[in-house]
């Protein structure tokens, strides 16, 4: 996510190291004084972030009664497990579509002129900063049965297609919102690839497309992995888009959590689903880390 923000605030060259340690009162415990400045932020985070999240996880095992009853309930019903698999498959689809759209886009950014690149970057950042509600509402208008998209399809002689209240609608909305999470890691890796390698491959007789596939694509894989993980994880927790564009009968886990907690006040069940969702997230981050390390080791070994 920090990578996501980097175009907004690229960290410049680190200011040259301080000639000595800082300032007048660098005596003794003053060295840890900067820590005091972090304390208010940490307190707010502990009270309104860490504690509530921990509390939710704990409630999975304690509410209404201690034990693993909430998990038994969740995994015991095929309908609930279907929600989970649907959530994962939606996330997977969103990731794949995002990758297909973002890869050429990010590649274009690496070869475009600086000015065009800045424009492309701005455009991809736009969904990140324009209101989620506004964007989802716009899709709702466009995708409805009498909407612009169906009108266009009608002109082509294709009958009205149900887009709103379907997985297709959810995917269209999600993918647009998730694009920056895929484009930015891709771009940051691609822009670091030495393009002379492509020329070198061509001078060795490879056709441009072959050179691209054999040389560039493998080198861009770390960006693919990072972007795909970001998109997958983020889409697992999506709420507004599926709730408005999707069908209630095909709910995703976050909608299910909302109903359980807000509607039925089943805190423990909500907590259990939070644990499952969070565990899946951490597992993915862990797997990605392992894959990256293995990849790096493989590369080092090849040398």
């Amino acid at each position: 996510m920090a990578a996501l923000l980097s175009p907004l605030s690229p960290s410049g060259p680190a200011a040259a190291a301080t000639p000595a340690e800082k300032g007048g009162g660098s005596r003794g415990r003053a060295r840890n004084r900067p820590f005091l400045l972090i304390v208010p932020a940490l307190l707010v985070l502990l009270a309104v972030f860490a504690y509530p999240v921990a509390q939710t996880f704990v409630s999975a095992f304690t509410t209404p009664s201690p034990g693993t009853g909430n998990f038994a309930w969740f995994f015991g019903s095929p309908a609930n497990v279907a929600v989970l698999t649907r959530t994962f498959s939606t996330a997977l689809w969103a990731t794949v579509i995002c990758l297909c759209l973002a890869y050429p886009y990010a590649y274009l950014m690496t070869v475009a002129s600086p000015r065009a690149r800045a424009t492309l970057l701005l455009i991809v950042m736009l969904p990140f900063w324009t209101s989620l509600m506004v964007r989802t509402f716009a899709w709702l208008v466009l995708l409805q049965d009498t909407g612009l998209v169906n009108g266009f399809l009608g002109l082509l002689g294709l009958g009205p297609v149900s887009l709103v209240r379907t997985q297709t609608g959810v995917l269209i909305g999600m993918v647009q919102i998730l694009m920056p999470f895929m484009v930015l890691p891709l771009y940051s890796v691609m822009s670091g690839i030495d393009r002379r390698l492509l020329t070198a491959a061509q001078s060795l007789g490879a056709r441009p497309l072959v050179a691209l596939l054999r040389v560039f694509v493998p080198l861009s894989l770390p960006g693919v992995a990072a972007g795909a993980t970001m998109v997958f994880i983020t889409s697992l927790g999506f709420y507004v888009t599926p709730a408005l564009l999707g069908s209630p009968s095909e709910a995703l886990i976050s909608q299910f959590m909302y109903t359980q907690v807000s509607g039925m006040l089943m805190w423990g069940r909500g907590g259990a689903m939070a644990v499952v969702l969070f565990a899946a997230t951490l597992l993915l981050i862990g797997l990605l880390g392992l894959a990256m390390r293995a990849g790096r080791r493989g590369k080092a070994g090849a040398r």
Partner: peptide, 8 residues
């Protein structure tokens, strides 16, 4: 995920 934070 926002939903987890929201519930908590």
């Amino acid at each position: 995920p926002g939903i987890i934070l929201a519930i908590g």
